[in-house]
Computed example of a mutant assay.
Amino acid sequence: MQLERRSTTPRWLLLGAPVGAIAFTLLITSLLVAWAGAPVTRAYALLLEGGFGSRFAWTETLTRATPLILTGLAAAVAFRARLFNIGGEGQLYAGALAAVAVGGLHGGSGFDASPWLLFPLMMLAAALAGALLLLGPALAKSRLGVDEVVTTLLLNFIVLLFVSAMLDGPMKDASAMGWPQSVAIQDALQLGKLIERSRVHTGLLWSLAAALALWALLKHTTTGFEIRAVGANARAAAFAGMPVAAVQVKVALLSGALAGLAGAIEVAGRAGYVTLDMSPGYGYSGIVIAMLAALNPLGVVAAAIFVAGILVGADSMSRAVNVPTYIADVIVSVSLIAVLVATMFTQYRLRWR
């Protein structure tokens, strides 16, 4: 038995691979649910009901999906150019910290500016923070051949330690009674509610607009063609005269900026300040979402809503049948492995000899 590369991939296989990966994931995790002593069918029904079964469930799912869409887009565009950005979590926190550094300059600091000026500056600072954080690994890869998987992954821990130092130091909120959190951004810089009596904010529209813009960029522009060409075969793209290193640097800036914006929108739309537990792994979940969507920006939206629904629904399932909420993390993790295997079989087939 050996793997043989496919000359062409059938459309049904491209569409069926993510579905098969999800089915396999649910099958594996059902064993864990049964092991916990809970009825599998009822547990999954509660999972779906908790994530999608009511107005409240949908609003919570969409709130959770907002940063996931952006981190999923960040991973998708980077992976399209064979730049494996594993640092979305660190870039999200860098963007959140930069947003508070700009949006929190008020009160006793003596800095007074119009929210119409301060809001775009806050978002720009967040995007720049995320972009510059990924620029270093991208340059190290293109100039020195350093593996970006290692550098971006390690940068996550460095950024979290830096955020911890800031929250216990210069950016600490003196009114938080010792709790490690940053100063809050101005009330005027908070994103408005998209749905009344819910936590869904207008950041969801930002995320959807980013997905549409990225799809148009990849589909209808010269830059998008270069990104796709470099991702398909970097050596062939270089032979055709494309600046491979420059393309990967552009992709790094775009990917990091999207992850940084996720942090800023999470601060402005939901939290209002930065804490170390602000993100329950949004950056890592973005990788799963990008793979579930087959790196398609529009597919990222659907995949992010699915993953968010799983995460939200796990809370309801846990309360009703006493299954640990960590089952949601298991579902997301197994999904990643299953999608990677399914993606492999869209490119290769098994041959018996």
Rank of each mutant, 00 (worst) to 15 (best):
L298Q: 10
N322T: 10
F345T: 15
A328P: 00
L295F: 15
A262F: 00
V301G: 06
A293E: 06
V288E: 10
L298R: 15
M278E: 04
E266Y: 02
G283F: 08
L253Y: 03
L253N: 03
L295D: 10
V307E: 09
G286T: 11
A262P: 00
I305S: 06
Y273H: 14
V321T: 14
M317S: 00
A303W: 12
S285G: 05
M278C: 11
G263R: 11
A271K: 07
D315M: 03
V300R: 01
T346N: 11
A314K: 02
V330W: 02
V307F: 10
Y348E: 11
G283E: 13
A320R: 06
Y273F: 13
I287C: 09
L276P: 09
A302W: 06
A257S: 12
N322E: 07
T325L: 02
L292V: 15
P280L: 00
L340R: 09
G286A: 04
P297A: 08
A338F: 11
V312F: 08
M317H: 01
G299R: 04
G256K: 04
G263M: 07
V301H: 03
V323E: 01
G256A: 01
T346W: 15
A257V: 01
V301R: 03
G263S: 02
P297I: 13
A294D: 12
L254D: 04
A293Y: 12
A257W: 00
Y282C: 13
G263W: 07
A293G: 11
A314G: 08
V323Q: 06
M278W: 00
A328C: 00
F306H: 08
